[in-house]
């Protein structure tokens, strides 16, 4: 299943966890757990969505976006991409 997830990531598209879950016939929670596993293995990395921007922003104390509800986003590590095997 992890392998299929990596293959899905080769599409070069922007994917949601729900979309991937549908493709793999599993739950979005399962996809999240696998993404964290792939992150630990170094295949992907989590993009620091808004936190850094918010810490620098003069409007951070009145902003609602990022600070309270950061969107979790991952990206494939470019140096691993050629190693992802195709079935």
């Amino acid at each position: 299943m992890l392998q299929k997830l990596l293959q899905a990531l080769q599409s070069n598209e922007t994917l949601s966890t729900e979309q991937i879950a549908k493709q793999l016939s599993t739950t979005p929670q399962m996809v999240l757990v696998m993404l964290e596993h792939l992150e630990a293995l170094g295949y992907i990395h989590q993009v620091e969505s808004c936190t850094e921007a918010c810490s620098q922003c003069p409007l951070s104390n009145v902003c609602h976006t990022g600070k309270n509800k950061p969107v979790k986003v991952w990206q494939v590590n470019s140096h691993y991409r050629p190693q992802i095997p195709l079935e």
């Binding site: 070069n12 598209e13 922007t14 994917l15 949601s16 729900e18 992907i44 509800k69 986003v73 990206q75």
Partner: peptide
Amino acid sequence: QRSAFIMEMP
């Protein structure tokens, strides 16, 4: 250039 991108939908 483009690369895959995965986001969690709340």
